[in-house]
Design a protein around this nucleic acid. Structure first.
Lengths: 189, 189
DNA sequence: ACCTTCGTAAACCGATCGGTTTTCTTTTCG
DNA sequence: CGAAAAGAAAACCGATCGGTTTACGAAGGT
């Protein structure tokens, strides 16, 4: 039983917004968004309050895909250390793709420069969730300072995806040893 | 003897471009730039080819201030380890300022999303210079893998300033132990 | 004093911005 | 089938974009 093959205008708009905003930035015009989604501007403004609202909603929807792609399954048999390393393996994997441009949640916040923008707040929450995941695993794994380790891992996550996104580093042979060093220093087996 | 107290239109434009672009993003209009600089659009386009050219030139000029602020003096008596730590102390210091928005060179590259843009290329070079500084100090300090260490430190630099810039972390108690851990792991005394 | 140079202010250009409205076609459902 | 709702296409709105041009005032050197 397949899920609907046909996407609703709403779904097409959300997908187009996520894709084009990621590629071209939040400055992308609504005209281009509508064209890519095959949806009229009229429909857009019936479904969403504004372009900002659409952007926030598209980030919100992508959040689930974001965690599904990066995070390990809820209770696989692996150790917290392995589960943390899994996240960074995924990052390195994604960074290999030619269209990779870094973490979209970080990019949106940097581009908007307005913490009160609805899309910025969604991005802030998503990033907070990732840090919370790291902290939870750190506690589970008996890290000496779970909070510090979670912040360090988040820092590496953002630094790595940002530098890969701007072409400053290709990450090969970089993330794994860095994360391992931090985990070791936190006495996390 | 003081340098000219009066700034030329060129200098005022470069400063306004750096300041306003950092605060509002590269999407800032030329009208606003001219107004802030107290310079007419006519003069702008006599002094610079285009807005993109002005942006690139302003980043170029700020590059020297960037290194002067962050990097230690050429041959102070300190050890490479201390000289590296000095950079991160400066970052943590800057991040405390309320108007801090992260590294402007990273922000410009993320906002432009175009590696061939003249301003992106300036930013790329500046970032490369910082990595080169780290590598040079790492070699001087006898790090086991100077190239790896330099990439790790650049990653921490960008991750830290980005996360501080978007308000995801205030960096207190984070950078120093992280950098120390990486230096230790590289056997750099 | 004169003329040239430099620079500001402001009008102007076509294009595009986010957003609204009108018109016409397609779909849906009783 | 026929009415009603949905949606696409496109004209339209005022504002603003990057960039050009015109017109006029304030210097500067001789």
């Amino acid at each position: 039983m397949a899920t609907e093959v046909k996407q609703s205008p709403r779904e097409r708009l959300l997908e187009a917004a996520a894709t084009l905003t990621y590629r071209d930035g939040v400055g992308i015009g609504v005209e281009a968004l509508c064209k890519a989604a095959g949806v009229s501007k009229r429909s857009l403004y019936q479904l969403f309050e504004s372009k900002d609202d659409l952007l926030a909603a598209s980030l919100e929807q992508r959040a689930s895909a974001f965690v599904v792609t990066l995070l390990p399954a809820a209770n696989d048999g692996r150790s917290p250390r392995e589960r943390i390393l899994h996240v960074f393996e995924q990052v390195e994997l994604q960074a290999g793709a030619p269209e990779f441009r870094g973490c979209q949640y970080l990019a949106v916040q940097i581009e908007l420069k307005d913490q009160s923008h609805p899309a910025s707040q969604v991005a802030h929450r998503v990033k907070g969730n990732l840090t919370a995941f790291f902290r939870s695993e750190a506690e589970q794994g008996g890290a000496s300072d779970p909070d510090l380790l979670a912040r360090q891992l988040s820092l590496v996550f953002d630094g790595a995806s940002a530098r890969a996104g701007i072409g400053a580093d290709n990450l090969t042979g970089l993330i794994a040893p860095t994360v391992a060093t931090l985990l070791d220093a936190a006495d996390m087996p």
